[in-house]
Structures are given as structure tokens and as C-alpha cells.
């Protein structure tokens, strides 16, 4: 009966956008951070030529238990960067799930009712801290702040290691963007 007292932690998230918007990156960073926090993780990407043009997507599963399927049909959360992604994946979101959407680029109406939709003006917020390219990190910040899946410090620490010496010059702008995303959700709340 122990299980009923404390259910083991489990969550999954699907993120999608244009190739180059850095969705693969934040997906890997999320999974990498969770691994550092001793969780089981899987990261599974869409792959092939479609990534360069239309929608790149990846799915991250984080769990205390052994992960069964890394392929997720109805994720707990969506991080959507553009219109085609929203169109493709909105219907998959679990009832009661969270949809974090980039309000800088998405012009389509959100159709789902039984979910929480959080608009994030990711491109503007990223531009404010010095780099529109870091919009992906704004989105990740919003996701982390809303879900509380991982601590902010854990993500920042993992980011440093994940970037390595070669890309360390991206570190501070990425952290600022990540913090912006977290703040933006705090403000909504």
C-alpha cells in the first residue's frame, strides 16, 4: 500500500518548432538535468530531413521508475514554438495537461478547453536579455516554473556542463533567458 501514499514521480513533455529554434537542445538539456538529479530519462527526437524545414520535435520522459515507453501518445505537457507544431500536436495533449505556447509566433487560436494554456512571448523576452535565439530557453524556463519538475539551480548547473567549454560563451544569455521565462510564469500566477 506504500505506493498509494507516495506515487513515484513521472512526467513527460513533447516540444516542437522549426528546425533551428532549439527545441532539440532544450529537450536534451531537460533530460540531462533530470539525469543529473538521479532520475530515469529518455529523449526521443523526430529525425530526418523534415527537421531542417518544418517541424522538429522531441519527447522527454522523466521518471523515478524504469521508463517503459519512450514514445508518448498523450503527453502531460506541450512546448509549442510555432503554428504548424501547434496544429500537429495540440490534440495529443492529455486532459488537464499544460500547453506552453510561444505567443510571439503563434497566431492560431488555442482550441483545447480542458487544459491550461500558458502564452509566453518568448522571442520578445529573449530579445530583452540580449538574444532572440534564446527564445527556446525562455520556453524551458516557463515550463520549469509552471511544473516544478526540476529546481532552477539544477538546470543552470546542468546547462554549464552541457554547453561545455566550447560553447561557454552562450551560457549567460541562456541563463538570463531561462530566468525571464520563469519570471513570466510567476507573473501569470
Amino acid at each position: 500500500m506504500k505506493e498509494s501514499i507516495k506515487k513515484p514521480f513521472y512526467t513527460d513533455v513533447l516540444m516542437a518548432g522549426f528546425g533551428g529554434q532549439g527545441l532539440m537542445f532544450i529537450g536534451k538539456l531537460l533530460a540531462f538535468t533530470a539525469m543529473k538529479e538521479k532520475k530515469n530519462v529518455t529523449w526521443i527526437p523526430s529525425y530526418g530531413p523534415e527537421m531542417r524545414g518544418g517541424k522538429a520535435n522531441c519527447t522527454v520522459v522523466i521518471s523515478d521508475e524504469e521508463i517503459a515507453s519512450p514514445v508518448i501518445t498523450s503527453p502531460h505537457a506541450l512546448i509549442m514554438m510555432n503554428n504548424p507544431s501547434l496544429e500537429a500536436f495540440e490534440s495529443m495533449l492529455k486532459s488537464g495537461g499544460v500547453l506552453i505556447w510561444n505567443a510571439s509566433l503563434i497566431t492560431k487560436q488555442i482550441k483545447r478547453k480542458n487544459i491550461t494554456a500558458i502564452p509566453v512571448r518568448a522571442n520578445e523576452l529573449a530579445a530583452q536579455v540580449g538574444g532572440e535565439k534564446a527564445a527556446n530557453m525562455v520556453m524551458l524556463g516557463a515550463y520549469i516554473a509552471y511544473t516544478g519538475v526540476l529546481a532552477k539551480e539544477a538546470v543552470v548547473k546542468a546547462l554549464k556542463e552541457f554547453l561545455g567549454a566550447k560553447k561557454s560563451h552562450f551560457f549567460s544569455v541562456n541563463v538570463r533567458a531561462f530566468e525571464k521565462g520563469m519570471e513570466c510564469v510567476a507573473n501569470i500566477r
Binding site: 533530460a31 539525469m35 530519462v41 529518455t42 526521443i44 527526437p45 529525425y47 519512450p70 514514445v71
Partner: peptide, 10 residues
Amino acid sequence: DGYLGQMMEP
């Protein structure tokens, strides 16, 4: 399969 090749895990 393709997923095993592309997937990342610890």
C-alpha cells in the same frame, strides 16, 4: 530500430 539509434538515455 531507428528509435533505438536516435534515442538518448543515460
